[in-house]
C-alpha cells in the first residue's frame, strides 16, 4: 500500500519536475556526490588534509617557480583502477638560481633563529605566499572554508 502511494507521489512529482527546468538532475548529483565521497573513502584523505597538502605544496614549489596560486588545482582523478593525484600548476615564470639560493639561505636562517621565527618567515616569503600561509596556520576556520570551495570545485568537474 505504501509503495503504491510513494510510487504515485514520485510520478506526480516527477511530472511537475519535468516541466520546469532543473539545473542539475538527480542522477548527476548522485554521481558527483559519490565521486567525492569515494575519493575520501579510498584514500582516507579528508578535505582538511587535502587543503593542508595544497598549502604545503604551494610553499615548497614557490621556492622554484612563481605561480598563480589561486588557479592551482589539486584533485583526485580516476583512471581505470588507478587513483591519481593531479596537481595543475599555472607557472608564471621560473625563478633563477640566485633567487632560489636566496630563498634557501633565508630558510636556513629561519631554522637557526627559532625565537623570531615568525618575523623571519615574513621576510623570507613573498607577500602573497605569506598571506596564504598565515591563513593556513592561524585561521583554521578559513582553511575549512577553503576546503569547502575545493570540494565544490571537484564536484563540478
Amino acid at each position: 500500500m505504501k509503495d503504491i502511494f510513494t510510487g504515485l507521489f514520485s510520478k506526480v512529482f516527477g511530472f511537475f519536475r519535468q516541466t520546469e527546468q532543473v539545473e542539475e538532475n538527480a542522477k548527476d548529483t548522485a554521481v558527483n556526490r559519490l565521486r567525492v565521497v569515494l575519493m575520501q573513502d579510498r584514500t582516507n584523505l579528508t578535505p582538511e588534509l587535502l587543503e593542508k597538502m595544497r598549502g604545503e605544496l604551494i610553499e615548497l614549489l614557490s621556492k622554484y617557480v612563481e605561480m598563480d596560486k589561486e588557479a592551482l588545482e589539486l584533485n583526485f582523478e580516476q583512471e581505470g583502477n588507478q587513483m591519481a593525484l593531479m596537481l595543475s600548476i599555472p607557472v608564471l615564470r621560473a625563478k633563477d638560481e640566485d633567487e632560489i639560493e636566496d630563498a634557501e639561505d633565508e630558510e636556513n636562517e629561519v631554522c637557526e633563529d627559532e625565537s623570531s621565527e615568525e618575523n623571519d618567515s615574513e621576510e623570507a616569503l613573498d607577500e602573497e605566499n605569506n598571506e596564504n600561509s598565515e591563513e593556513q596556520e592561524e585561521n583554521p576556520s578559513d582553511a575549512e572554508n577553503e576546503s569547502n570551495t575545493n570540494t565544490k570545485h571537484s564536484k563540478s568537474k
Partner: peptide, 18 residues
C-alpha cells in the same frame, strides 16, 4: 528512472566502481 535522469545509469555505476 534512468531515462528521466533520476537514477544513475549502468555506465555511471560501472565507471565509478571501475
Amino acid at each position: 528512472l534512468i531515462k528521466s535522469n533520476d537514477m544513475m545509469s549502468v555506465e555511471d555505476v560501472v565507471e565509478i566502481l571501475s
